[in-house]
Every structure is written in C-alpha cells, then in structure tokens.
Amino acid sequence: MLFNQIAQNKRRTFYVMFGFLLLVALIGASLGYVFWNSATAGVLLAVVLGIFYMLSMLSRSTEIVMNMNQAVEIKHESEFPELWHIIEDMSLVGKVPMPRVFIIEDPSPNAFATGRDPEHSAVAVTRGLLNRLNREELEGVIAHEISHIRNYDIRLQTTALALVAVISALVNLGGNFFWWGGGSRRRDDDNNGANVLVLVLSIFVLILGPLAASLAQMALSRNREFLADASGVELTRNPQGLISALQKISNSEPMKNADPSSSSLYISNPFKDKSWTHLFDTHPPTEERIARLERM
C-alpha cells in the first residue's frame, strides 16, 4: 500500500508538471501570435524567461525563503540537541546530507524544507512545534520534511514558483502591449475568419493564464504533500507519529511570522484558510491525509 501510494503520487506529479510546462508554452505562443504574428517567437521568449527565473531562484532560494519567514539558523547541536539529533538521524535514514537547521520564533507548530537540492537544503521549524510535539511526533514531521528533500520536492516547488513568475511576466508584457497599442498583426490577416478565432483564443489564454497557473501550482503542492507523508512513514515505519502531529498542527492557531508566498512549503497551511472548492488550497485536507496514513 505504501509503495503504491508513492508510485501513484509520482505519476500525478509528472502529469501536473507536464501541464504546467504546456501552459507556459501556450501563453508564450499566444503572446507571440497576438503581438508579433509569430507563436514561435513567443515560445522562445517564454523559454528564455524561464531559464532566467530558474537560475535566479535556485541560486539563492534558501536565504530568500528563510529571511521572508524570519528564520534564524542554528549553528550547533548544543542549542537544540533533540531537534538536531532527530534531523541528523532522519537524514541518515533517508540517505541525504544533513540540511541546515533554522528556528522560527512563532508559537504555532509548523515546519518546512527548502533549497535547490539535497546538498544545499535547509529545514525550519517553529518554536511552537518544539514546545507542543513529543519526540515521536517530531520525528514524523522531520521525516516528512526530509522526504521533501529526498524526493527533490524542494527543487520542484522552486521550479513551480519560477514558472508562475514567467507566466506573470508574460501576461504583464502582453498587458503593456495592449495598453500602448503594440503588436504587428497584419490587417489583411485579421479579416480571415480562422485568424480572428485564433486571435480571440490567444487573448483568452493570456487573460486566464495566471488563474490556471495558480491552480496548477496548488495541485502540485497538494500532491507532493501526500507523497512526503507516505515517504516520511517509509523512513520512520510509524504512521501514528505523523498522524498525531498533523492533528495537533491542524488544531493550532495561525502563524504570525509566516510569509504568504511561502505557505505552500509548510507541512500544513500556516494561515488555516481554506477555499470551499479546495482548488486554491495549498495543502490537502488534514482529514484526507490522516485517512491515507491510517491505511498504511
């Protein structure tokens, strides 16, 4: 059951990422077709922007995210020995280098992992997590975060953020062209019914692109949480520890120091807000996560 869930979640992630990349290419093609009469030019622009944003975010993702969430790095195990040893143990079991350790001074229990790869990763936990969880529960949470590192979710989330930024930049560029009356579509082409239809569909894609990107990013985040839950249990062989931790975290107060753009990184939504359709939720419902863990 455990390995079936892991395999299923990996397949779903592939489908979501494929759709995400297709959306970026489609928006680029739409921009190029509307303003330069060349879908290829738009796709090339999207690729160049994507590479730029990817390199920029991956090179300094840890420092940026930790600063935004007011996290302070722990340099030595003597400061928080139990936390340090649990992270050390789970890293050893997960066969990844030990990540840097950070503390967030917030009474609400939560945690997240970030970085560009296992060799340049970091784990942050709140003061509330250390105060409210026992060792078994803390091991469940840390195993979950180590699984994000082990499964390269940290790089995947950074990639998703870069793709969202690319889509935003492309749509903003299109908006500026519209505002200033830009574009080089030929008047005689616009009289052709088929060209008019493609033009309308391209504009439609540019308008709805950011919404579709947000949905794809949230779907990716929810799926990777399921995968990290299952992979975490693979490390601890104890689903009850994570179940109990999720119950305590979900019943706690919202965080005060969390950055909204980082909310999808946390093990549970730090702001406790939910959409009635769940389409815009950064995390799957806690009840569903617990139900899956109980079946392992």
Results as ranks from 00 to 15, higher is better:
A219W: 11
I167P: 07
S244R: 05
D229E: 09
Y266M: 01
P254T: 02
V196W: 06
G241Q: 05
A228F: 02
L206Y: 11
W179I: 14
A162H: 00
N191I: 07
N172F: 07
V200P: 05
P284Q: 00
E294G: 13
N223V: 06
L201H: 01
L206D: 11
G183N: 04
G175E: 10
S184F: 07
T277N: 10
Y266E: 04
A169L: 11
I290W: 15
V205Y: 09
G241M: 05
G182N: 01
L170M: 02
I290G: 07
S202Q: 15
H278Q: 12
N151F: 07
P284C: 04
S264K: 14
D229T: 03
N238C: 05
L235G: 09
R186S: 11
L170Q: 02
L242C: 00
D281A: 11
A162V: 02
A165S: 12
T282H: 00
I207W: 06
I249H: 06
A228L: 01
V233I: 12
N223C: 05
A212F: 08
F178K: 14
V164P: 03
S231A: 02
E294K: 15
F280Y: 13
A228Y: 04
L220A: 08
A194R: 05
G175V: 11
A212N: 00
D189M: 11
V233T: 14
V200Y: 03
H278D: 14
P260K: 02
T236R: 08
A258V: 12
S221L: 06
G175Q: 13
V198T: 15
N269Y: 02
I243S: 12
L173E: 05
I149N: 15
V205L: 14
F204I: 13
E225C: 05
D273L: 07
D273F: 02
H278I: 12
S264T: 07
D189K: 13
A194E: 09
I249P: 08
L170E: 02
Q247G: 09
S244G: 07
L235H: 10
K256L: 14
P239Y: 03
S264G: 09
F280I: 04
L293K: 03
P260F: 03
A160S: 05
K272Y: 00
L227P: 03
V205R: 15
A258F: 12
R186Q: 11
S168D: 15
I243K: 09
S221W: 08
V171M: 07
S250H: 02
Q157G: 11
F271E: 05
